[in-house]
Design a protein around this nucleic acid. Structure first.
Length: 668
DNA sequence: GGGTCACCAGTTTTT
DNA sequence: CTGGTGACCC
């Protein structure tokens, strides 16, 4: 397909700043990929001088695939296509020592840092009863992403979460550093610090990179923007692409004003607007337009399309979430069998992750293959967390969170009393816990009145860790070592002690072997001569999700299940938006603040505009919550869709009945 | 030291 | 309905 004049202009734009306002489905990704290829092929720019950034793993992967399809990979060697966070990670792998961290730093996920925060709160004598750790974490994250400004707001508030955050903020960073650990926000923040403080490093990057592109710019936050501004050289070759109507990460500090003010920041910026939609048919697009126009403070624009259809998006209400799932599965089967739509071209989008469960169940019953795209569910499995904790301790004796997690798992007779004694000793003498354990075993006169039996168990534990430390770092085969490690730890034995159901034991073991596969894939990506270490693996683990599967199937029969957030940037022939109820979308937490409801509306808009040919909206009239049934109300966004663009199958009118009969006819 | 059981609080969205 | 926590007993 040929580029339209505006797209062409964007692709050919060479040097200097550029802002591309790109509506949903306006060929944004095409422009970016074409521009990259144009730079390489026509302008003879070294691929390694080009950096294209996006916000989620999902969209950067998408970009990578699109580029791969258009140009042989040897011609893009060195091209950087990544998320902000993995760019930060790679940067820190080279320079973090400048800040006094060791090069083998560890990246801690929020669930890892919970324990640290809890300890700090306790040590400050803060009553942890009414404190929600995730709120503290999100406050810390906001300080890191927004800066002093936010710190001041918290300081002058009487909100208990704010005050506690202020109280522990400094110590939190200290503790993290003493563990040689960083969190997600540090992936952006620390590189900024290094670039600001080290002119030499900054210069080297100005030489190294010359062209930057930022996809989904509306989701960028201040810190990320700051990082970009430090990285670009005086040529200001920065091209940003975004759409204010698709800004859906406000809760993470993303800042729409960045895109709205870009032209002020870069006075000579060229601005291009892409308003023709190439994805959806007119009915879907008009329905979406009629919703988004209810938002205040947006840049007025109306997308248009040349694709005409006579089929309206339809809206279906079902009894409960189970019934909704049944309807969905019926429709999906119909699409696949009768319309011959490939599974991967069908997607089910929901507001919150827990909504996927009934759908998964129903699809599994019918044997419809699906792929659940979501970040954490796999890593949240207890056995996977435990295994990772083992790996962490092997990699780093001083990862105390991990150490405490596994010290008595599988149960080896090191009980709470002993653990407390060890903890006290460590605190009192200011020696790491691991050291205390070692002393306990090797040195005489260092007995904390711990029973001989316990001490010998501790010794066995240390032996195990030591053995695998040698194995992992001594050999070149991470995966092989991991398999042995799992056996030696004795997971299977422990599982059968905990659980009599054979199937559950199998399932847990299967999760572990899934983890083994993951490590195998990871390992096989590396060159023969430069094998990855355990540290490389751990660092990657925290940034990546499980959907890194190297084998690319030619055809993917799996229906795609994901949150509306993750669907951004993607497109499907058929899209189902489910659970369209007040309290879900817009989420009950946001319902009274209009600016946040606007964000929910954008989210809904993003969901709608994923559809190419068919859009189906559903809702359950009753829904189970905490095990009890509640009746629901239809989402306000449904009623915002202008009537002429919605086939509401729940209104009993002669017309819709006729449609219904007609559709029965066509089935026969 | 470890197992059992009653009680309770919790589901936004991502790196 | 879940998963996590803490009291209580062997």
């Amino acid at each position: 397909m040929k580029l339209n004049p505006e797209q062409d202009k964007a692709v050919k734009h060479f040097e200097g700043p550029m802002l591309i306002f790109a509506g949903a489905g306006s060929g944004k990704t095409r422009v970016i990929t074409n521009r990259i290829i144009h730079l390489i092929k026509n302008k003879n720019i070294e691929p390694s001088k080009i950096v294209a950034l996006s916000f989620t793993n999902k969209s950067s992967k998408e970009l990578r695939e699109r580029v791969r399809k258009m140009i042989p990979s040897k011609e893009t060697k060195g091209l950087i296509l990544s998320t902000f966070h993995s760019l930060g990670l790679n940067f820190l792998k080279k320079h973090i020592e400048l800040l006094g961290y060791h090069l083998n730093f560890l990246l801690q996920t929020p669930s890892d840092t919970e324990g640290i925060i809890l300890d700090l709160l306790k040590s400050k004598k803060i009553d942890t009863e009414e404190i929600q750790i995730p709120l503290i974490q999100s406050n810390i994250s906001k300080v890191k992403n927004i800066g002093q400004e936010y710190f001041d707001i918290m300081q002058s508030s009487d909100n208990i979460h704010f005050l506690s955050t202020v109280e522990i903020y400094e110590d939190y960073n200290k503790v993290m550093k003493s563990m040689n650990s960083i969190d997600f926000d540090d992936l952006i923040l620390l590189p900024i610090k290094i670039l600001r403080e080290n002119e030499e490093v900054k210069k080297s990057y100005h030489k190294k990179f010359n062209f930057f592109m930022v996809d989904e710019f509306q989701d960028t936050n201040k810190t990320q923007y700051e990082l970009i501004k430090l990285l670009i050289n005086k040529n200001n070759n920065l091209c940003v692409v975004g759409d204010d109507d698709q800004s859906i990460y406000g809760f993470r500090g993303s800042d729409v004003s960045l895109i709205l003010n870009f032209e002020k920041d870069f006075k000579n910026a060229e601005t291009i607007r892409l308003l023709q939609n190439y994805r959806s048919n007119d009915k879907i697009l008009n329905a979406a337009n009629s919703v988004i126009k209810n938002n205040s403070g947006r840049k007025e624009k109306t997308l248009w399309t040349e694709i005409i259809s006579d089929e309206l998006p339809k809206y279906v209400e079902r009894l409960d979430e189970k019934d909704e799932a049944i309807f969905l599965a019926d429709e999906i089967e119909y699409e696949m069998k009768k319309n011959h739509i490939e599974g991967s071209q069908i997607s089910v989008l929901f507001r919150t992750n827990y909504q996927s469960r009934p759908i998964e169940e129903e699809l599994r019953i019918r044997g419809i293959p699906y792929k659940l795209i979501g970040a954490y569910n796999f890593f949240d499995r207890k056995e996977v967390k435990d295994l990772i904790a083992y790996i962490r301790v092997v990699a780093n004796h001083n990862d105390e969170l991990a150490l405490l997690r596994i010290l008595n798992y599988p149960k080896r007779g090191i009980g709470q009393t002993s653990i407390s004694k060890i903890g006290e000793k460590s605190f009192e003498k200011e020696i790491p816990v691991f050291q205390v354990l070692e002393n306990l075993c090797h040195e005489q006169g260092y007995i904390l009145d711990i029973k001989k039996n316990t001490a010998s168990k501790i010794y066995e534990f240390l032996e195990l860790i030591q053995k695998y430390r040698t194995e992992f770092f001594g050999s070149n085969k991470l995966t092989e070592t991991l398999k042995k490690f799992i056996k030696d730890i004795g997971f299977e034995k422990e599982f059968s002690l905990e659980e009599s159901n054979e199937k559950v034991i199998k399932a847990r073991m299967l999760n572990l072997s899934e983890f083994i596969n993951m490590m195998y894939y990871f390992e096989s990506e590396w060159d023969e001569k430069q094998k990855p270490t355990l540290f490389d693996f751990l660092q990657r683990l925290s940034v990546l999700t499980l959907d890194e599967e190297p084998e690319k199937k030619e055809r993917d029969e799996r229906v795609q299940l994901m949150t509306m957030h993750l669907s951004k940037g993607l497109e499907f022939d058929v899209v189902f938006l489910i659970g369209l109820e007040e309290g879900i979308i817009p989420s009950s937490r946001t319902i009274d603040e209009s600016n946040i409801v606007d964000e929910e509306r954008r989210l809904f808009y993003v969901g709608m505009t994923r559809a190419k040919k068919r859009l189906v909206l559903t809702r359950a009239k009753e829904r189970r919550k905490y095990g009890e049934m509640y009746s629901t109300e239809s989402s306000r966004f449904i009623s915002e869709i202008s009537k002429e663009y919605l086939n509401d199958l729940n209104i009993q009118s002669p017309d819709s009945e006729f449609d219904f009969l007609k559709s029965l006819e066509s089935l026969k």
